Computed example of a mutant assay.
Amino acid sequence: MITVKVLLGKDTVSIYRKTGDISSVESTAESGGYVITRHFETEAEYKAYAMAVEDLDGHEDWQMLAPAVTPEAPFRKGEFVRLTDDAIKRIRESFGDGPADYRKEMILEVIAWCRYEGTWIIEVRDIREDDTQEFDAVFLRPLTARDLVAISAPRHPLSTAIYPIHIR
């Protein structure tokens, strides 16, 4: 997400240029100025807005501040993910082979996320168990077609054998 602030009004812009601070709502209102904050989902939307604001040039005093870009969450709600090899290794070191092997097979659905101290915490639901857990995003990776093939492969070679039946 891209967030941009536009300062409108001679006093509002003057205070910002002198101090680097954005005036309070009360002080900008007293001088007839405004601070407009806009949020954009895409860079194209932001650029279109910036071009429109450029048309203000020559009409009173204004200034658009540099845009602040909020990094997107690494996964989207509803996306299926798996634990990384590093996560499985750490589980194996802490809890043994059984818990690690079970978690290696898990397919997780992303439910929610939040930004915490510079990282993304991802809440996921194990689709087989219907329980939720939270992981640092670095311990998750997207589910791939290769994962699906590996998970769906029969455990025993004869478990899915198909024999033709001739009916007369």
Rank of each mutant, 00 (worst) to 15 (best):
T144R: 12
P67W: 05
H39D: 09
W113A: 14
D85M: 08
F80D: 01
L83M: 10
T3D: 01
E43D: 08
I36L: 13
S23H: 02
R103S: 07
Y46T: 03
T144V: 07
E30K: 15
E129T: 09
Y116K: 14
Y49E: 00
C114A: 13
D86M: 04
E134H: 14
L7Y: 03
R76W: 11
P71K: 11
T37V: 13
Y34D: 09
E109Q: 15
Y49W: 01
R168S: 12
K77Y: 12
T19R: 00
L140C: 11
S14E: 02
G20Q: 06
P154A: 10
V13Y: 01
F135D: 09
R38P: 00
I167R: 04
A50G: 00
D57K: 15
T12A: 03
R128F: 11
A66D: 05
D131L: 13
T70Y: 12
L56Y: 03
M51N: 11
F75W: 02
V13M: 02
Q133N: 13
W113S: 15
R92S: 11
Y163H: 11
S31I: 04
Q63C: 04
E109R: 14
D61G: 10
R90I: 00
G33P: 03
R141S: 10
W120I: 04
A73K: 10
G20R: 04
